[in-house]
Amino acid sequence: MQKVVIVEDFCIACYNCEVACVATHSRSEEPIKAYKRENLRGRSNALVEVNGPIAFSAMCRHCKHPWCLDTCISGAIQRLDNGIVYLDEERCVGCWGCVLGCPYGVAHPNLKGEEKHAFKCDLCIDRLEAGLKPACVEACPNKALIYDETMEETEGAYNR
């Protein structure tokens, strides 16, 4: 299964996944430069949601039938052969259709940058090709994000 499993029971809201995501998608691949020089704050594809004791890192579920793809007017969103739902930021025209269409709220509008495109999780496609795990999974200190390609996809929540 090509997706990151979110284990809600053990998310401790440390935000390390967000920082790792920003860093890995930056030019410098270094968190401080990414935030301070490349101005990528708020560009994390993972978004930690906290409400009382409950927390989890929300990110693209790479749906079998992606609603964001249905709404995309420019063909920027494609479902790749390996199941990754990929948004090509170059081709995106910024209609925000995917932002509205995503039932999980994990396609985000890039409101701060000069180029008005949407952005979403690409499952660290470059890292996967290099044999690494997605950056957020590697950064998670409490095993609240798990990536295991051998894991079966289930409809229900992830059980220990």
Binding site: A13, C14, Y15, N16, V19, I32, Y35, K36, R41, V50
Partner: peptide, 12 residues
């Protein structure tokens, strides 16, 4: 300067 305002410490 090193702080990127991720707010992890606030939550922790």
């Amino acid at each position: 300067y090193k702080c990127v305002r991720c707010l992890g410490c606030v939550e922790q």
